[in-house]
Design a binder for these strands. Structure first.
Lengths: 347, 347
DNA sequence: GTCACAATTGGAAGCGTTTTCAATTCGGCG
DNA sequence: CGCCGAATTGAAAACGCTTCCAATTGTGAC
């Protein structure tokens, strides 16, 4: 393994000059720079980041904490984060805390504090103020995506407003019997989006003078399969059926559509369904949705972070609202004139 | 920021002893160990991994290179890898190379060589021998999952055998008009699974004396939406229709099922579909599949790697076949007696 | 109560860079 | 041609640990 020393010798320069030449910092004559780079290339030399970090205090490494990379939203964000980070020459250390609260705790307390990362991106995690302060105390900027982080910068979409818009879309089409599928309790714990979206739903319903029926407020776990099961309950019950469902995520909307098909309900003829996300699968189902460009959110988070790191200006906590896009496809339409069909469709 | 020196003072021990106590290595009396740990806890001290790594040469960090965390298989593997790594106190540096060959190249040549990772896990990537040697040369063990890595350890499922088994399952049910959906050319490039699976399919067909029709060999991009489009072509054509489809992944199988439903084809009554993966969504569709436990593969990769790292025995390249599980659900059945129904079903 | 040997402990030399500070060189101007 | 400030350069001191080596302490056997 060649060291910077070898490069210096080969280039006929001092270690210090080579260091400056390779890192791009400081004043180095073009001639020296070239020599250093040539020598490094010839020796196949790459800086040891450990030594660099130790000496400079900068890591070129960002920690990303996600509830589970296996989920659509998080993996989308990670893709955006990863691409932007790699472009900037940064490494990305992934902390996937899907194992539960213990894992989350150990990551926050054992891993992140080891001075290995320059900054932290927390996706949909509700960190306590103490946890945030702990990180800020060791000069680790944090930016949160889609989670309330008191005292830290965040990027978020207007959950409440979007939910209102989605609901209003249904209302404007003429629906009044609208169900809402949201995340279940376990999700509220970590990221409280579901609640926020539910708030928007209720607000829109109230504004339109429509009744929110408790039995039409169902929950699922944000997955297609979970929503499918919930939707079967909702749509298969003998009681009255809604004419539209607003699901708090595309995956849940898709689960709902699948359940509806099982019952012979045509979407959107018998049942309108709208989601939130911009999931790739939406197209297959003609899903009307609100695209939140998760990748873009990840990319933006990195840009904010890097800007902060490089300017060394602490910047303070900023709260950025990320724009979303209403995508109307074919899963929403005017409600059936004759009211909902019986559960056992004429299939 | 407290340093190990502060801990040593507070504990009334030498720096060396504290270091040994905290790292668990070397002989330290229980009494000293306790003192050191107590002092560290009181000061909120955590080792600086940079300094540790620099001094010891060990990083406690594994690099994971994946084609795209946004895809089912890769994110599953990453979950398994992450959990096992975190348990062992290791960090996971994620290199998501979905941006294409340039990104792949820069990761392999700029990032991985910076001595930041102790080992590399490459998922479904076909590395050149040169790339592998480059890594091995700097003492970075590599283990590959689902990709041929000449000279490195690998974990793989028996792709060919599985494909044969899946095909035989259909044949045994009485099918003879069997289509196969596999990955398209762009996928062949990076990981050549599709080809291997296709080989198994052809082998089973040949063994049963069945004809492989070129027009029933379709390709897709491994996603539900991509397969859906391909399957529409396959099933909607005016030509004869197969009675069964063997898809090289569950997502493609699901896309096929969705397309079939669009045409009013009942699964499995009119069309049997089988996949490979063990995708969570399989249950919703009653998909018969071969579960390859991607998480388990990730976990195993880490265990192999860590065993190698800790024993310092280079071990040489091992090739481990990972077991799979045949899961029969309701998407496969005997073929329709009266032959396939016309494209426009009596829905 | 000794002695040999093992278990602990502390001192200090790195690990491979970055960066400060002072020294040196260079270019331009009077 | 000589002088001055700016641009370059090099020496050496960190950075915060790990670990070798030697010194010290503890243990059990005789």
């Amino acid at each position: 393994m060649p060291g910077i020393k070898d490069v210096a010798e080969r280039a006929g320069l001092s270690i210090a000059t080579v260091s400056r030449a390779l890192s791009g910092k400081g004043n180095v004559s073009p001639r020296s720079r070239e020599r250093a780079q040539a020598a490094a290339a010839e020796l196949g030399f790459v800086l040891s980041y450990h030594a660099s970090s130790l000496a400079s205090g900068r890591n070129h490494n960002v920690g990303v904490v996600v509830p589970s990379v296996h989920r659509w939203f998080f993996s989308s964000v990670v893709e955006g984060v990863s691409a932007t980070l790699l472009d900037a020459g940064y490494d990305l250390t992934l902390y996937n805390v899907s194992e539960g609260p213990d894992r989350r705790h150990s990551v926050l307390n054992d891993f992140l504090l080891r001075k290995r990362v320059d900054a932290v991106i927390a996706v949909s995690l509700e960190l306590s103020e103490a946890e945030i302060q702990q990180l800020l105390a060791i000069h680790r900027p944090i930016v949160g995506i889609g989670g309330p982080l008191p005292g830290a910068s965040t990027i978020r979409i207007n959950d409440s407003g979007i939910a209102e818009a989605a609901t209003n879309h249904l209302i404007r089409l003429g629906h009044s019997r609208i169900a809402h599928m949201t995340g279940d309790a376990s999700y509220q714990q970590d990221f409280r989006l579901p609640g926020t979206r539910q708030g928007g739903f209720e607000k829109a319903m109230a504004a339109a003078g429509l009744q929110v029926r408790p039995e039409w407020q169902v929950t699922a776990d944000f997955t297609i399969q979970g929503a499918y099961a919930s939707a079967r309950q909702l749509l298969g019950g003998s009681s009255e059926r809604p004419t539209a469902v607003f699901a708090a995520s595309d995956e849940m909307a898709i689960g709902t559509i699948l359940a509806a098909r099982d019952f012979g309900l045509r979407v959107p003829h018998d049942l309108s369904v709208i989601g939130i996300d911009g999931h790739e699968l939406g197209e297959v189902f003609g899903l009307t949705t609100i695209d939140q460009d998760a990748r873009g959110q990840g990319a933006l988070a990195v840009r904010l972070l890097l800007a902060g790191l490089e300017d060394a200006a602490d910047g303070g906590a900023t709260d950025t609202e990320f724009p979303t896009k209403f995508v109307v496809r074919s899963s929403t339409a005017v409600p059936p004139v004759d009211g909902p069909r019986p559960a056992d469709g004429s299939r």
